[in-house]
Design a protein around this nucleic acid. Sequence first.
DNA 1: TGCTTTTGTCAAAGCGCTTTGGAACGGCGT
DNA 2: ACGCCGTTCCAAAGCGCTTTGACAAAAGCA
Lengths: 348, 348
Amino acid sequence: MNLKQLSELLGLSQTTVSRALNGYPEVNEATRERVLQAVKETGYRPNKAAQRLATGKAGSIGLVMPTAPDHYSDVHFGEFLTGLGEEAVRHDFHFVIMPADPNDEVGALRRLAISGNVDALFVAYMRGHDPRLPMLKSLSMPFLVHGRSIGSEPDYPYLDIDNEGAFYDATRLLLQLGHTRFALLNGPEHLDFAMRRKNGMIAALSERGLSLPDDHMSHTTMTDELGQTAMERFLQMPERPTAILCSSTVLALGAIRAVNQAGLKLGEDVSLIAHDDVLPHLKPENFSVPLTTTRSSLRAAGVRIAQRLIGTIKQDGPFPEQELWKTELIVRSSTGPVPRADQNLGGV
Amino acid sequence: MNLKQLSELLGLSQTTVSRALNGYPEVNEATRERVLQAVKETGYRPNKAAQRLATGKAGSIGLVMPTAPDHYSDVHFGEFLTGLGEEAVRHDFHFVIMPADPNDEVGALRRLAISGNVDALFVAYMRGHDPRLPMLKSLSMPFLVHGRSIGSEPDYPYLDIDNEGAFYDATRLLLQLGHTRFALLNGPEHLDFAMRRKNGMIAALSERGLSLPDDHMSHTTMTDELGQTAMERFLQMPERPTAILCSSTVLALGAIRAVNQAGLKLGEDVSLIAHDDVLPHLKPENFSVPLTTTRSSLRAAGVRIAQRLIGTIKQDGPFPEQELWKTELIVRSSTGPVPRADQNLGGV
DNA sequence: TGCTTTTGTCAAAGCGCTTTGGAACGGCGT
DNA sequence: ACGCCGTTCCAAAGCGCTTTGACAAAAGCA
């Protein structure tokens, strides 16, 4: 069943049917209804290839999937992709994926761009001075990045959350509660978001004349096991930290296991604030001690990025080039005043 | 630059140029050379959409990417995808990916099929009685599965490795070395390959009148941390197992850490055989005690699957419908005779 | 030499859609 | 009655490629 057959069936011209389908104003509402009805009955679906040829739009956005262990072992990426996918399906867009050796991300991105299969590109997992950025800019194809890249000219379209602000605020809260000995469970060190969170934390600390020694930071892939291991190390320190910042609720899950196994009480002996990406299977309010968090939905970011990308392709715009989402600081029970015994002991 | 312009430039007809490009025989070799040369100089690339429209082929294969934590936290999938991608790039094919809620895999697969964006479908991570299979069969679109599905009618095209055989052989080797107390570090219980490996192991054991109690099996996502945890549990048993089978070298990595930390010697106190997917960053011969393995390259499987899928689409066939790859049993130093002290103690 | 094959090339007809430039029609004012 | 406008629809021209059917030119055969 194609447009021609459908239009013959309806006794209309192809033009009219096409316009009815694509929401053009110059077609009678009654006619449009009739067309829509016929589409339902016949199960007509426009041929994608023909649409692509006629419009010059592929209806797809490209992304290269790095096959490095770092990226894969990451439920966060899955959650984000789900958001992207949700919105894409809604507009009948799809993703073209190119698996690539992590050493050849730039090349893979270029190949994807010139393949003619995509209208726009998307990248994530930004690093400092990210080499993909100059490449994308030279490409004359719309693109959007999730996150930012420290050290790069900030003249590219992005969506990011205010990582510095989030961890700055979280640190301030803990400082106000009297804590002076801090530690950080962070994501992989080379990733932009991890750097920014660290910076935000350090900024707040230095306002009080405190610093954060290297051995009080852990940079790992964000799994619960690694969170536990790192936390165990912190807890074995002679002057163990009482205030922990944590880049993910997944890391926090492990960290809290370590706290419990050490016979300590979360929110009393140890205060912890985690960043909450709103993962559906891991709700901070359901932890045995509900978690104080900085919150920003990863899935919502995916939805928004898909929206902007698709909007740009369809030229629905204009969209803001750069969006920086504030996070919410939600106080629950995992934070409390510094324990009496640890007061006035001075910072690390 | 399009075909028309290119042909005018060359003083040839579009037909001839098109034929020269697509390897048809009825064009003079000298002419073909000339065309190819011009393509290089002008950087001409055929318009994908037009090709799709003219040929009816999309030049792409679809896969739904489950966003469940299980699948993501899996370097194995990345390695496999790399193989697929390698071969796809070679033929200028691409993947269309649809991220999907794990509860809606079947629906996502159907949407992908009717979207008109793909010529063929690919699925992996098969489970028993997999509900995707009947759906795919009803679809009149070529598909290929990696793995098999216990409990399903075996009338679908697949590529799988002989998981039963691999673990049967591995178990026999350990039995011949005198071991009687076994344990298994396996992948997620509901996945077909894990079931088959367990079955192969149990088959070999029962030939000697041995069995494998539930607490001597661990079913987890295949990360090194979880391998370590599970192994620690095995080693704390009053009659600790001396022979370990392991579904991945990644699990083995953690397991061996546990062995070392318990002050035991691999290949002497404990023998271990792991399945080796030939992950580039984890070579069994580079372990401090080189690992005895059952080997089958996951990347090679990816390449082969892409070949078959692309071949089917291009009707290059015929390909065998079902392929079952034998694994190699490669003996290195992580296996040795049962320790003297543990001899004749009887199986679990 | 005249005849049939083979070889190398071409013009033109799609593939199924979007979109441009008009045309038919009714309602309005004069 | 006429001309003019806005609305609603249509015919036809692409989009860039593949492929069919035909045709010259070259080659093989008698």
